[in-house]
Design a protein around this nucleic acid. Sequence first.
DNA 1: TATGTTTAGTTAAACGTTTAACCAGAAAGA
DNA 2: TCTTTCTGGTTAAACGTTTAACTAAACATA
Lengths: 341, 341
Amino acid sequence: MPPTIKDVAKHANVSIATVSLAIHDNQRISEETKQKVMQVIKELNYHPSRPARGLVSQKTGNIGFILTENHFLRSEPFYTQIFLGAEFEAHNHDYYMLLTTIPEPLPKKVKLPRFVLERNVDGIVVAGKIPEKYLAQLEKEEIPIVFVDYYPDGFDCSAVLIDNFNGGKVAAEHLIDLGHKYIGFVGGDWNHPSIRNRFDGYISALEQHHLPVSDLLHITDEDNTTRENGYQAAKKLLKKNKTITAIFACNDAMALGVMQYLQEEGISVPEQMSIIGFDDVEAAQVSTPTLSTVAVPKYELGLEVVRLMDKTLDTKNITSNKVVVGVELIRRNSTGNLRLC
Amino acid sequence: MPPTIKDVAKHANVSIATVSLAIHDNQRISEETKQKVMQVIKELNYHPSRPARGLVSQKTGNIGFILTENHFLRSEPFYTQIFLGAEFEAHNHDYYMLLTTIPEPLPKKVKLPRFVLERNVDGIVVAGKIPEKYLAQLEKEEIPIVFVDYYPDGFDCSAVLIDNFNGGKVAAEHLIDLGHKYIGFVGGDWNHPSIRNRFDGYISALEQHHLPVSDLLHITDEDNTTRENGYQAAKKLLKKNKTITAIFACNDAMALGVMQYLQEEGISVPEQMSIIGFDDVEAAQVSTPTLSTVAVPKYELGLEVVRLMDKTLDTKNITSNKVVVGVELIRRNSTGNLRLC
DNA sequence: TATGTTTAGTTAAACGTTTAACCAGAAAGA
DNA sequence: TCTTTCTGGTTAAACGTTTAACTAAACATA
């Protein structure tokens, strides 16, 4: 059994209160006694028990991390990268992360994670979009929540967000710089704010450069944003519009699906069609051609969300802070100059 | 504030002991009282506090997960996949995982993770190779340890391991089946048991098929197993041996490095040289050509290690169990029939 | 000298559980 | 009827901390 505060007290010939006060550097305790206590603590290699401490302080030292099962399990480690960043930063603030997933489909009777019911976390990070119903349930628990890469409309809260609007703009501008005039957009999961923001950024860039904006350039009705959705969207887009020379896909998965379709159709990238994605997933670096994209600093998002959580937990002020982290254009081989032929 | 056991007791008009006993379905309590208590519990949405419960039971409900910083941060998410598997299975056993990394280089004064010092975990999963010094320190804490994908020589413990020997054998046999006679091996980090086991499996296959075994076929002196190591190893191997028509690399990273070298040298894969790797990392699916390999079920390893930990924690018997999980040959485009030209 | 103030601690309550030890009342055995 | 045994609880101690309230001794003030 590891030593407890009692053992320290006994060895130092003081009361356990003195030990505790010494540890917390209370000025009630003389330098001399502190020294003695610290000496014993070192000798016994004593460390206060986190659970015991938590009982009285009502702080667990843990942060919960919640995301949907789909986000957790999907092969592109987007949210798991965020988690790993959070995990890393948590250490710098003396926290540990507890992770849990929301099952999908959501059962009728929402069951909150054990760590919130059993009061085993001080705050919760919600990563990515989660069902409204779940959120409503969570809100009742009166536990600090910080969102990352998503936050519900009309919900007053802290969040770390990607600069999706700017990202969409940057992506479109990159294509414009390359000389493209007819730039298509493929997206899906349309009630996701991030996707719409990317779209808005794209539109904004087109307008700013007085380029044509038209429904004929967009596919936005895919219900999700997978590779397969990208494939289907590309098919639809090229059917209804022959003038397009570049496509901005709302994420890399869809972009890869688009490329796959183009390849099957014998349309070469980037010679006949430029493609740019969003996210910078691993696969973007190794696809043929490698995929130009807008990089989202996933790991960084994780760091930020824990910093924000730490601040929230520290200062009881539950003012809703928003942190926006920037994105970066990554030029690879799927985008090229417009060729007039 | 969430309700405590006291609130339940008050509402049910019984003592807190009765509530506790009712929760644990103790036969001392009449059916009738149990019903009443359960009713109140449901109404108040009461859940026992994990920390408080832990104080008396001396169980935290947490499992620690330790790996080196390098393993954690490296781009190929091998160990993080294991972690995610562990995380998933942990839920099925009502545990939460706490993750921490070992800094590298290891500081002179080894500092164990807070979660073990503060008794915030019931057991520890050690993933991958960690420094001996660290392990020695950890051992002193008398906390159950289960290893995954590694375990130290001469250490009596439980572990979940990959069937590396068989994997090496299967890889070599695949090449043999394709008609190859001169099959090279490139490896590194030679004091890692897994690597050596893969090599042993490879040798065993060669011998079984009466194929030549010779030092001229092997590069084993690379100090690590990165892509760059693979590149260098390929260079060395092809310098000293011109008859080779196939190469088994001890992992995918090295295999990709080998392919890169071959490409630069104008040696086509698989026409002139077949390559097979080990691990089945993401990049293996998207490289050109896609990489044949021996798949390691990383996620599955995570599941297994938690199952084993659960068993260990359940039955106080600290008999050292070993679980070996199988591997699977994945045929892709980097291996082909021997062409006699 | 009596009284107040400081210093450096100690005692005890509290946090939310579990569980061993105890106990009142009912049923059973003599 | 008196003891014994069951039944169905309750009381209280314990887990390892923190911290408010208290106190004894030393010192200062009038």
